[in-house]
Design a binder for these strands. Structure first.
Length: 399
DNA sequence: CCTCCACAGGAATTTGCGGGGT
DNA sequence: ACCCCGCAAATTCCTGTGGAGG
């Protein structure tokens, strides 16, 4: 670094095209590995939309990183292109139900992504209108600029209530839309998800069901190799890809994880200033991936939930017990100190309890109820799932 | 197996925000 | 410019209960 004239002038010694290692990167058709059957079936299920007909509604199951979202996005985009050649307008809405979990948020996101203010005179405000108003606008948008709307609901099991699904699935028959039609692709991690739905929604939503199996080590290797173009020639040591694939295969065949680890391995090599990605870097890359995943999750939490995580982490580090179980009240006092330091008014106890149980739902913490004996009442104790050091680091880095 | 109470958590209510309608 | 709506977040009020010690 020090002897170079420009900070940016040097060619990257490791990466040729790092974009290929971004998980959001949508590969070309021949780059999706080991999902040929699934893509075929999906295509078959929604092919009617190509000529303006109604596609089948689809439910896809499978663990994280098995290519559910990738295949859905790819196949719908392909469909939209093919339809455009027949002068059929297909709109695609992708909703991450983890982030947009309420009915209002979901409908709003769908309406927003299908809308094009230049072509419709409908606006979709961020807030300020009722849920039914969002629906009304969505139907307007569908009728005025599209022939078919395809809605991908990712992590559909995180939706609260099935009202949205009711409304969407009966839109056509209830006469909400006339000129257009719509299809739903639901994606879920839980195979049992279907059982939690009421009959009406169940039969309409799962006209076709698919299960995406985890990738095996061989497929993971193929996936990684297909993205090896991201690296310069000959920088990857012999055993790197097999080792990364083996690590990811052990953790339920998560391709996303595999790709992330590979990218981190490259970054580590870069930091070491070498032009070879050695196998030895893979373990460190694996650690880095776990830390990053934790930071991701924590940074998405609301401010006060992060303060609570920090409070719990600090309190955990203070105690000498091997498995520190911290009562809610103790977290609360630590939390008040954190708030004080940040110059924020602390939330009340009741709200904190709710936030803590949300954190438990996300598996960031674990809760357990304990009694303290006659005349002493009962209370819940909280425990961090991850290393307190890592957690507090993740909390501090988000500002 | 019963007891006892601090805390858990349900329900009702308020607050704050970002918009419509007029 | 004004008032009013619907929603989510937060607060207030309150009853119910988990479970160790007796």
């Amino acid at each position: 670094m020090s002897d170079s004239k420009s900070f940016f002038g040097n060619p990257d010694p490791i990466f040729a095209d790092k974009e290929l290692l971004r998980v959001s990167h949508l590969p070309q058709g021949d780059r999706i590995i080991g999902r040929d059957d699934e893509l075929q079936s999906l295509a078959k299920a929604i092919k009617d939309a190509q000529r303006g007909g109604t596609p089948n509604n689809v439910l896809i199951y499978g663990k994280t990183g098995t290519g559910k979202s990738l295949c859905s996005k790819y196949i719908t985009r392909d469909l939209a292109d093919a339809a455009a050649e027949n002068d059929v307008k297909v709109g695609i809405a992708y909703v991450d139900c983890f982030q947009e979990s309420t009915e209002t948020q979901t409908v709003r996101t769908i309406a927003r992504s299908l809308n094009d203010p230049d072509q419709t005179d409908v606006t979709v405000p961020h807030s300020g209108v009722s849920t039914s108003d969002y629906y009304r606008r969505l139907w307007d948008i569908l009728d005025s600029r599209l022939d078919v709307g395809i809605i991908i609901l990712d992590e559909i099991d995180k939706l609260d209530g099935d009202n949205v699904l009711m409304q969407l699935s009966r839109a056509a028959e209830a006469g909400k839309v006339n000129k257009s039609t719509l299809g739903i692709i639901g994606i879920s991690n839980k195979i049992r998800y279907k059982d939690t739905l009421n009959e009406r929604v169940k039969s309409s939503l799962s006209e076709r069901d698919f299960v995406f199996p985890p990738y095996d080590a061989g497929q993971l290797r193929a996936i990684l190799r297909s993205r090896a173009d991201a690296f310069r020639e000959d920088v990857l040591a012999e055993d790197v890809i097999p080792k990364v694939a083996a690590l990811a295969a052990r953790e339920h065949g998560d391709a996303r994880k595999a790709i992330d680890i590979l990218r981190y391995a490259g970054e580590i090599a870069d930091e070491h200033g070498t032009d070879t990605v050695h196998v030895e870097y893979v373990d460190e890359a694996h650690e880095r991936e776990e830390q990053a995943r934790l930071s991701e999750l924590i940074s998405k939490q609301p401010t006060h939930s992060r303060y609570l995580m920090l409070a719990l982490a600090l309190r955990t580090q203070e105690t000498s017990e091997e498995t520190p179980m911290i009562p809610t009240k103790q977290i609360y006092s630590a939390y008040q100190i954190v708030c004080d330091r940040e110059g924020t008014e602390p939330l009340k106890m009741r709200r904190v309890r709710d936030l803590l149980s949300e954190l438990a739902f996300l598996s960031l913490i674990e809760q357990d109820r304990k009694g303290r004996g006659k005349g002493k009442g009962a209370h819940t104790v909280n425990e961090l799932v991850d290393d307190p050091e890592l957690v507090s680091e993740a909390c501090q880095s988000t500002r």
